[in-house]
Design a protein around this nucleic acid. Structure first.
Lengths: 258, 258
DNA sequence: CGGAAATTTGAGATTGTTCAAATATGGTGG
DNA sequence: CCACCATATTTGAACAATCTCAAATTTCCG
């Protein structure tokens, strides 16, 4: 049990993959092995895990902390495309000679590793496919958010999506989670000024839609809030009878160690 | 040459794939065969090719005309996620039991077919992978557009992207192309009202950034315009020496018929 | 020619931005 | 434990962008 501290830390990442797909021994083993070569990045000066245009040798697998995919316009405007949360992957594209279409920067202290290669048809491949599909769905949600919602709706919608995603990796506690982002980062994500983020947050607090203090967010009634702003959970595959099972199935080989 | 009319019509779709990847005889043959079972949809009442939540049995392959991926909010607000142009595909996700995350509606008269299945590692598979990567890049571009650009920049940026994409299928003539969309559709794409689209277009016309009349758009100086709004072409893979070749390579089997 | 759909125009109401300054917060070294 | 600093949050007031709601016009199509 010499790895217990490390493993406890990485569990969320594995947990997410096990929840969105069915992992087998081979997949878990490959992931475990990849996770031994862990890398670190800190949010100090928004350290980059990857720079736009870089060659992507292998996908990145987030183990803990938050990162963000960002695009900078020539005049300095910045847009955050999406957050990368524990258990999520970046660079799953299968095109020849892939290059990063955006930079990846650390938002909090981050640990990650290079994702193991998946052979076509393997369980790991299926997990990657599902992760990629979810990623596209999150991106589509971002477009709707930016295109058709007002400031307060954007905030709520994003917070609800993050709750959904953080729950997958067990990084949410009930209806709350740690939110390691400044209001400026929220603004760059939601296409608004940090000043306006601030005022909108205050308005939401007054309306008791959320509680946000000392880096922790609480959504008192997520379902009711989702209903109010007309949000439906992200779904990329038809739920099957077996799906329920796979979502609660134990991780194979979680006790055997690497 | 009995299919000549049909083939002339379909050529743009094949051309695009041949330009973004290297097609071999097998790929072209499979595509040709799939294209025999052509389907039609008209823009009348925004006819749906696919409805949100539908099971996606096979990807759709656009042969001619424009379609759009749309999301409707419960209160009726509508957001267009992206256009589908000739040669582009929808539903390439490889997750189990895929379901459509949005509806696909015809914007003009559209012909399309079900895309042939590609075996892992085949040339067709590589073409699909590249198409999917481009799709993701377009989506990311949409997020930046909506999040960090003003009305006029959004219009220009979208028009430049469409020029880039239509050129791939040979559906642009020099610096102009047919733009079969109403100002309302532009608004739903760019997150603004049709009224504001109208005013912004007028402003752009006065500034001579573009010409737009009777469904045809002309961008007098695309490169200069791109520079002005700080737009860089979409790129998802590192250009290699062979890339230039593949972009101008003749379509294999284009003369042999089906 | 007629009618539906699309574009254009006007004017006031909202929403979100800008810029600048004040206040709070968290981490650090003494 | 406290003082101090950099960073983040909060506030104010003027300004700009965009929306809303009609009501013309124009265009397209049969």
């Amino acid at each position: 049990m010499r790895h217990s501290a490390t493993m406890a830390h990485d569990q969320p990442a594995l947990l997410r993959l096990a929840r969105i797909a069915t992992l087998d021994q081979g997949a878990v083993g490959a992931l475990r092995q990849a996770m031994e070569r862990r890398r670190y990045a800190s949010s100090f000066h928004a350290q980059e895990l990857l720079r736009e245009g870089d060659t992507v040798d292998a996908p990145l697998f987030m183990l803990s902390g938050w990162a963000a995919r960002v695009k900078i316009l020539p005049d300095g405007r910045r847009q955050i495309l999406n957050f990368l949360l524990p258990g999520e992957l970046f660079g799953l594209g299968r095109q020849a000679d892939p290059c990063a279409p955006c930079s990846i920067v650390a938002i909090s202290h981050v640990t990650y590793c290079l994702a193991p290669r998946a052979s076509p048809g393997s369980a790991l491949d299926a997990a990657y496919a599902m992760s990629q599909a979810l990623d596209e769905a999150y991106m589509a949600a971002a477009v709707v958010r930016l295109g058709r919602m007002n400031a307060r709706e954007r905030l709520c919608d994003l917070f609800l999506e993050l709750l959904e995603r953080l729950r997958l990796s067990g990084n949410a506690t009930g209806d709350s989670y740690a939110l390691p982002v400044t209001q400026e980062i929220l603004g760059d994500t939601l296409g608004m000024t940090s000043v306006h983020v601030n005022r909108s947050l205050q308005s939401l607090r007054r309306a008791e839609e959320l509680r946000l203090a000392s880096g922790r967010l609480n959504l008192p009634e997520p379902e009711a809030l989702a209903m109010r702003i007309g949000r439906t959970p992200i779904r990329v595959s038809i739920p099957r009878r077996t799906a329920a099972r796979s979502f609660s199935a134990p991780l194979p080989g979680l006790h055997g160690g690497a």
